[in-house]
């Protein structure tokens, strides 16, 4: 069964009147893993904030489009409504989660607090142990008594994931969960996510700037640039034959793609900044293939026959274009 868990359609967000996201469209099936990639400032974390209803706290609001979770619209939820979704339907592992734990509470106390708040009918102690088991922490009873500073970075990240699982969410958002970690630890954490997917049946939205991580764990990928999604499709397809010039440029900039001492492909210019988005396609000032219309008309997401979609005027065959159903 590949039912749809999450769909974002044409999402637009403003912070203090400044447009920061526009035309963000993506979808995620139940139990799927979606990689959300893009560089600093492309809008990945803001998309997460919108999904957690956390925009008002930074003076932001949804101004266009819709977010649908399991058939229910989240777009117009009020704060009590979000409180029923946050942690319970959608769990969140924030970026810099290493600093997100309370330094003066033991891991056990923090877990029990989360469990008794989100899942009040179960025995908080037993459930805490179960959660730490889920994230594959060894010697769980010992870990419960520890303070965050007594744990390694990888262990703390596992605790953060355990906290996000306390409300038995059906979707887990993880914002750069392995960015600060060593590669061997990163690999172990990514394996935890893969296990969780099997054991809990939840969906995962993994935000990362690392295309290698996406290639390893995601089924589908959404590539963001300048506050919008520019390409969306099966991870294997997008990574092997990128159809948007930005995706291709990102892949080409990786040192692993070049021989030793051979210059890397770079993207000229600087990334689009919110509030100073260029007219037309936001990538057009940096795009090697930009044509006249690219500088004037913003391309919309169009879906090709193979199910991939992209926002680019340079589609090889215009007759293949059909309105996107992402």
């Amino acid at each position: 069964m590949n039912t749809e868990l999450l769909r974002i359609n044409g999402l637009g967000v403003e912070i203090a009147g400044l447009p920061v996201l526009s035309e963000v469209s993506l979808s995620l099936p139940t139990n799927g893993v979606l990689g959300l990639v893009g560089e600093t400032g492309s809008g990945k974390s803001l998309t997460c904030r919108a999904l957690m209803g956390l925009l008002p706290r930074i003076n932001g609001k949804v101004v266009a489009g819709s977010i649908t979770f399991d058939g229910v619209s989240l777009t117009d939820l009020d704060e009590p409504g979000w409180a029923r979704v946050r942690g319970r339907e959608i769990g969140f592992v924030p970026q810099a989660s290493l600093n997100a734990l309370d330094p003066v509470m033991t891991v056990g106390a923090q877990l029990r607090e989360a469990v008794s708040h989100l899942d009040p009918d179960v025995d908080a102690k037993a459930r805490s142990l179960e959660l730490l088991d889920l994230v594959r922490l060894p010697q769980v009873r010992e870990v419960l008594r520890r303070y965050p500073h007594e744990l390694s970075g990888g262990m703390r990240q596992r605790v953060m994931i355990a906290l996000a699982l306390a409300g038995r969410p059906r979707l887990l958002l993880a914002d750069e969960p392995t960015t600060a970690l060593d590669v061997t630890v990163q690999k172990a954490i990514l394996e935890v996510f893969a296990d969780l997917r099997t054991s809990t049946g939840m969906g995962l939205l993994l935000v990362t700037h690392d295309l290698g991580v996406v290639a390893d764990v995601a089924d589908t990928v959404a590539v963001m640039y300048g506050g919008t999604v520019v390409e969306f499709g099966r991870a294997a397809d997008v990574m092997s034959t990128p159809s948007h010039p930005y995706t291709a440029a990102l892949l080409g900039a990786r040192p692993a793609t070049r021989g030793r001492n051979e210059r890397l492909t770079t993207i000229p210019g600087v990334p689009a900044v919110p509030g100073q988005w260029p007219a037309g396609c936001r990538f057009s000032p940096r795009c090697a293939f930009a044509r006249d219309e690219c500088h004037h008309v913003q391309p919309t997401m169009l879906q090709a026959a193979d199910g991939r979609s992209r926002a680019c005027h340079g589609w090889p065959d215009p007759s293949e274009e059909a309105p996107a159903h992402v």
């Binding site: 061997t184 690999k187 290639a215 390893d216 990574m239 092997s240 692993a256 793609t257």
Partner: peptide, 10 residues
Amino acid sequence: SIPGTSLTTA
């Protein structure tokens, strides 16, 4: 442990 080795070889 390097992520994306499939990518590299591709």
